[in-house]
Amino acid sequence: MDEPRLKRRRTDDSGATRTPVTRSAEYWFDDGNIILQVESTQFRLTKSMLSMHSSVFRDMFMVPLPPDEPTIENCPVVVLSDTAQDWIHLLGAMYPKFFLEVARPPTVELIAGILRLSKKYDIPLFREDCFHRLRMQFPSTLAEYDSISGRTLLKEEPHMLIPLVSLAREFDQISILPLIFYSIVVTESDKYMFKVMNDLDLSFRPADRLACLQGYVRLLDLQSLISMSWIDKDNGYIPARSCPRYQACLMALKDIIYNMSRGQRPEIFILGQWIAEWEVGLCDACRSKARKIFEDARQACWNELPGVFGLPAWEDLKSLDFE
């Protein structure tokens, strides 16, 4: 791992700092014995806390300071080439204000900031926690995907989906890419497909942009051929062979198809849950047959999801993940 650049506070010929700095209102502790200057913000912290989490700082603090080292309030100053906002995110994790903060899921910006610093300064526990959170939000099995339905593990703001692609690649979390791509395509699909095609944000690689565009078409094909195949009367699935009232169930199927065409489900629905309204008018045999076909198709679509976006199979993706 490359050693991060740690610099002592520098002054110009007049002794004044080159840029005006301000003290952090939240992370300036009276008992602190080290000051970190990041951009124009200074944080007064304790060496023991930094050393407990980071091997880089622990090794740094073992080196004696020169006797003429400039200080502020008897604290040495270390200048870091990071962003102040990333350090605010990291210090929020080091000095939490909430216990078991389940109701306040982290943002993508917070996860990204902590990942950047935990990699640079070797903070393994925070890095592993971030990876775990990402893999929970974007799992690699359908059972895990269903288990988080309705739960918010990460504030997945729509405008942060594209930066999540870059984040996954930067930190080698390749197995989360299929669901991120899927989310880009199905979340307000018209708006985001327009963004995918026209956004000039260089952080979204052309190859990833193309994967979304091609994936959109492939998802529509999968949906018609597999996940919603049970509603195609030409397939002969519904009415079922054991149906005791063929004509009634055939009419019910036509009503279901008509209602779907009126926009009662999203355009792309390959991973969606069964909707109770689809059972209206069907006999028990047809209802059971339809649900079985639908659930088997969901699993088949899940298995195909990585390939939809030009990625390897799920097991191969997981083997590419770091840690």
Score class of each variant (00 low, 15 high):
residue 72 I to H: 14
residue 114 I to W: 00
residue 147 S to W: 04
residue 179 L to E: 02
residue 174 I to N: 08
residue 106 P to A: 13
residue 76 P to F: 06
residue 143 A to N: 09
residue 87 W to R: 02
residue 109 E to G: 11
residue 178 P to D: 11
residue 91 L to C: 11
residue 120 K to Q: 12
residue 99 F to L: 15
residue 133 R to N: 07
residue 127 R to F: 07
residue 153 L to Y: 11
residue 59 D to K: 14
residue 175 S to D: 08
residue 79 V to K: 09
residue 120 K to V: 07
residue 69 E to H: 12
residue 148 I to Q: 03
residue 152 T to I: 15
residue 61 F to K: 10
residue 165 V to K: 03
residue 161 L to A: 08
residue 147 S to Y: 01
residue 135 R to T: 02
residue 165 V to R: 01
residue 113 G to L: 09
residue 167 L to R: 00
residue 52 M to A: 13
residue 131 F to A: 03
residue 154 L to I: 02
residue 142 L to Y: 01
residue 51 S to T: 14
residue 155 K to A: 09
residue 114 I to M: 08
residue 87 W to S: 04
residue 149 S to V: 04
residue 125 L to E: 15
residue 78 V to I: 15
residue 92 G to R: 02
residue 156 E to M: 10
residue 168 A to R: 02
residue 70 P to N: 08
residue 95 Y to L: 12
residue 125 L to H: 13
residue 93 A to M: 11
residue 127 R to V: 06
residue 94 M to K: 03
residue 84 A to G: 14
residue 78 V to A: 11
residue 51 S to R: 04
residue 114 I to V: 15
residue 110 L to I: 10
residue 182 Y to K: 01
residue 158 P to W: 12
residue 167 L to K: 01
residue 170 E to I: 06
residue 175 S to R: 02
residue 173 Q to V: 01
residue 59 D to S: 15
residue 131 F to S: 04
residue 51 S to P: 05
residue 159 H to F: 12
residue 146 D to G: 03
residue 121 Y to W: 05
residue 97 K to Y: 02
